[in-house]
């Protein structure tokens, strides 16, 4: 089992003819993902390395039965692309694009909420279920199938931790990158709920970072609803107040959003929080 996606997922790539879209569509296929269609306005009727390209999602779905979307379109065109994917009820809609204006993300997320479509990102690496499907840009060779669910606001830090798990013989059910923007679709809480209900997942790793209160909200959910063990890691312990630390969402404002507040909340909910990324594997071993 896996969460959100499976071997049956039929993926449509928005922006498949661009540099990143074309490259990552090929990597996803190598992983075993069914890439059934591409959409690039102005390039309908062509094909991208054998994948048919359409002008609209409606046409693409009618012709190919696509069920999920992955966006590589530039930030200024991303709102239009995401709203279209949601309107056509592709699910999940995975937005890789970085730098989308936050008011645009607010609209995207609101429309998703109204239609029941699950949006992942923006500014995220996507999600990977080893042996099943990958949507996004996570490097293929890191993964191996197994019992650990991973949810994260950071791409490369996810790779770092997944690579260490695999190296130590611990596989993953699904790795889910939520994205580094202040407003994103799926939250830690949404991801935890899916992993709690997934029979393959035996433990969950939550990789958070400074800014906002998503980790504190997750801690409340864990305390109230999680029966499976959760291991945490929070990046940004030494970050100064008020600086945007690379991710648009990683800013400590006033006393809110600090690593200390997040770690305290998670520990109070029974989560074992690693001080160094390298400690995560050891803590996972202890709870498996």
């Amino acid at each position: 089992m896996s969460v959100l996606i499976s071997a049956k997922t039929r993926v449509l790539i928005q922006g498949i003819t661009g540099y990143q879209g074309e490259f990552h569509a090929a990597r996803m296929r190598e992983f075993g993902t069914q890439i059934v269609a591409g959409v690039t306005p102005g390039k309908g009727g062509t094909d991208a390395r054998g994948v048919p390209v359409f002008e609209t999602i409606a046409e693409a779905v009618a012709a190919t039965g696509a069920t999920a979307a992955c966006l590589f379109v530039p930030a200024r065109a991303a709102k239009d692309a995401a709203l279209e994917a949601i309107e056509e009820r592709l699910d999940p809609v995975v937005i890789i694009t970085e730098g989308i204006p936050v008011h645009d993300s607010v609209q995207i997320v609101a429309w998703a909420g109204q239609t029941g479509v699950r949006v992942i990102g923006p500014n995220c690496p996507g999600l990977t279920s080893p042996g099943q499907c990958k949507i996004g840009i996570m490097p293929n060779p890191l993964f191996t199938e197994g019992p650990v669910g991973v949810i994260s606001r950071s791409g490369t830090l996810t790779y770092e931790i997944v690579a260490a798990l695999t190296q130590h013989g611990i596989g993953q059910s699904t790795a889910l990158g939520l994205g580094g923007d202040p407003v994103v679709g799926m939250s830690f809480t949404d991801g935890l709920r899916l992993f709690e209900d997934d029979p393959q997942t035996k433990a969950v790793i939550l990789i958070g970072e400074i800014g906002g209160s998503a980790e504190e909200d997750a801690a409340q959910f864990i305390r109230a609803h999680m029966t499976k063990p959760v291991v945490g890691y929070i990046a940004g312990r030494t970050a100064p107040v008020g600086k945007r630390m690379g991710h648009a969402g990683a800013v400590i404002s006033g006393t809110a959003g600090t690593a200390a507040s997040k770690i305290a909340a998670l520990e109070a909910a029974g989560v074992k929080v690693a001080t160094l990324p390298a400690d995560v594997v050891r803590l996972v071993r202890e709870v498996l």
Binding site: S154, T156, L157, G180, T238, M245, G246, P277
Partner: peptide
């Protein structure tokens, strides 16, 4: 210097540690 905001933030923490 690093690649990816989370990795870089974590790198700062590890250096400080």
């Amino acid at each position: 210097i690093g690649n990816g905001a989370g990795l870089v933030m974590s790198t700062l923490d590890v250096v400080a540690h």
